[in-house]
């Protein structure tokens, strides 16, 4: 009963959060030095052409009025015209959101695929050679920056072995999938380093807990003790860790999309910043913020489902 109430009412609580985010990004974007009209038209533009552009995009209005128009447009399903692409930002975002979401999804999926078995192996043989190796690799994984890691993966798997495409995104599902593996792996490797360490620690604590001892005393086989009594309890803190990291993860797509030349939101964001395309930057920032908020909301629901003790 509690859960349904939560699912219904929590989104309402998100409305003021999103409002705050929109105000902050709107103002911050306008603090970036540089004149969008001049960047668009180049250094030799005539004053009248500049003024024309400013009027066209409403840049000569006071900031609060610009914000008001922005909200009004948002109500009508528009986010304002991009100065660079000459189309509505919402349209830009909808066409480019898919590769980014797919990338984040692939990253998290691969990270769990790496972290869960390695953490399990490590925790169940604490102090063994395997355990030391896992800990060493996961520490090293934390140290590599993603742009370097991405480049190395390209050189090895795409250029040397020619197993996977170098960059881009592709059209069909199969193509997309093969294009996503390397960038997804780039994200997953650093994310799984954090995940493995937390999971391993939680699993070790779980294996030594009273719950595990009591289960063994009832004659449960060790594998059942582990997967049924240790892992579910260890997953709860991990889901929260993932949710906390999701903002960082989405930020990471900006770099990874650039390295792998994927036309996603991250790349759009970079280009928007360089061209002072206010509408694009604030649109993408808000999308990222919305995604972070929604993913944390989802994580809350998962946590409640995993652990009946937690009341929201």
């Amino acid at each position: 009963m509690h859960r349904y109430r939560f699912v219904l009412f929590r989104p309402l609580q998100l409305v003021p959060v999103l409002f705050g985010i929109s105000v902050i990004t709107f103002l911050l974007v306008r603090l970036i030095p540089g004149d969008p009209a001049r960047i668009l038209l180049g250094t030799r533009a005539t004053p009248s052409a500049l003024a024309n552009i400013r009027t066209q995009y409403g840049l000569d209005e006071p900031v609060w009025l610009q914000y008001f128009y922005f909200l009004k447009n948002l109500g009508a399903g528009e986010m304002g015209r991009s100065t660079l692409y000459k189309v509505d930002v919402l349209k830009l975002i909808t066409t480019r959101i898919e590769p980014t979401l797919a990338l984040v999804g692939m990253g998290v999926f691969l990270a769990l695929l790496i972290a869960v078995p390695f953490a399990a192996l490590s925790a169940r043989r604490q102090g063994s050679l395997v355990d030391h190796a896992v800990r060493l690799v996961s520490t090293a994984g934390l140290g590599f920056p993603s742009f370097w890691l991405g480049a190395m993966l390209i050189i090895f798997f795409a250029v040397r072995l020619e197993w996977l495409p170098v960059s881009g995104y592709g059209e069909t599902f199969r193509e997309k999938l093969s294009h996503l593996i390397l960038p997804g792996l780039t994200i997953a490797l650093s994310l799984s380093a954090v995940l493995t360490r937390t999971l391993r620690a939680a699993m070790i604590a779980g294996l030594a807990s009273d719950v595990a001892t009591a289960a063994r005393a009832r004659g449960m086989p060790e594998s059942r003790v582990f997967w049924r009594h240790v892992v579910p309890n260890a997953l709860v803190p991990t889901v929260n860790l993932l949710a906390v990291n999701i903002g960082w993860l989405i930020g990471g797509t900006v770099v990874v999309e650039s390295v792998f030349a994927i036309a996603g939101l991250g790349q759009l964001m970079v280009r928007g910043i360089f061209t002072r395309d206010y509408m694009v930057v604030q649109g993408v920032t808000m999308t990222f913020a919305l995604a972070t908020v929604l993913i944390n909301f989802a994580a809350d629901i998962i946590t409640v489902t995993l652990d009946p003790r937690i009341k929201l």
Partner: peptide, 24 residues
């Protein structure tokens, strides 16, 4: 030993809260 544990020799512990799995 596992077939004996729980079936022929059972055990209960001091802390029932920490001995029961909270998520089951």
């Amino acid at each position: 030993m596992r077939r004996i544990r729980g079936r022929r020799i059972a055990m209960i512990f001091q802390e029932p809260m920490t001995s029961l799995n909270p998520v089951m």
